[in-house]
Amino acid sequence: MRFTSYIKDKLFCIVTYVAFFLVFWLMMLAFRSPAPLIRAFALLLFFLAAANLSWDYLRKRKFYQEFQYNLEYLDKKYLVLETIEKPGFYEGQIWHGAMYEINKSMLEHLKRYEESIRDFKEYIELWVHEVKLPIASLLLMCHNNRGALEKKYVEQIRRVDGYTDQVLYYVRSEHSENDYLIKEVALADLVRKTALKNKDDLLENEVEFSVEHVDVSVITDAKWMEFILNQLVNNSMKYKKKEDSSVIRIFARQDADKTVLHVWDNGVGIAAGDLPQVCKKAFTGENGRTHAKSTGMGLFIVKRLCTKLGHGIEINSRAGEYTDVAITFTKNDYYFRD
């Protein structure tokens, strides 16, 4: 609260004081009052006006300065009302009361919104669990009634399963609360599960699947990481070159303080211009136009999950040559301390 601005704001009041003083002075002159009396009254009036304005300025300044300071330095600005005292002046009280009401109604609104998101998330989780049952039945039926079409059916059912997983993990990556559990996980187990899940596809497309140096433990959520690996392998297969023989290599490098897992393929790669954007939501880029159709959600979800789990993710690629996704797991000494 600046003094000059305050004075400007009170200009009408000051003008009234001055006008009153002039009228008073002219009247005193008209009644031929003695000069010392006029001066004394003039001085008295001036001090009264000054005292009045200063007192008003000071009490407002005390309140507004605290308020503005708190507002500036508060991380969650909507909580500012909790940090200040109720003002002593009338306008302030009206304002405070109004702010309180506004805040309250906004919080209620927000609560409804949060509840509806939570309900929606719970419903999606439930729905995914439900839809997994017919998917499981279909896979069993295919297995029990083997025929010429079995492989084709299984492939399509697996696609449905993949998309339902994507919905589940999208919701989890956006609104995760207690649905992940970080513990020591054998990387080889995750790779094996991913390999088995994609076995038919890899064999059908004659993709060489090579796994090296994955006999390490990392600290992560096994289910989330499995989804991430599965997405990366799916991407590698989706964007493989049509002419050359395809290779997917999964390997881990160990450093003193971290383990880096690489998923490398010799596929079509990512254009340099697209590279910084591939993890953005709904980004499809050049590959989305020229190759397999893409929703642009896979890598977005992968990146979100990695961030939530505290893993680094880095994508390197050269168009037409290779793509390498590196996931960094930090080795947390604290975790292993008893």
Binding site: V128, H129, E130, K132, L133, A136, L168, N178, D179, Y180, L181, K183, D221, A222, K223, W224
Partner: peptide, 10 residues
């Protein structure tokens, strides 16, 4: 099970 959270498995 169709429950896919790590907590359930643990």
């Amino acid at each position: 099970t169709s429950r896919t959270s790590e907590a359930d498995e643990v």
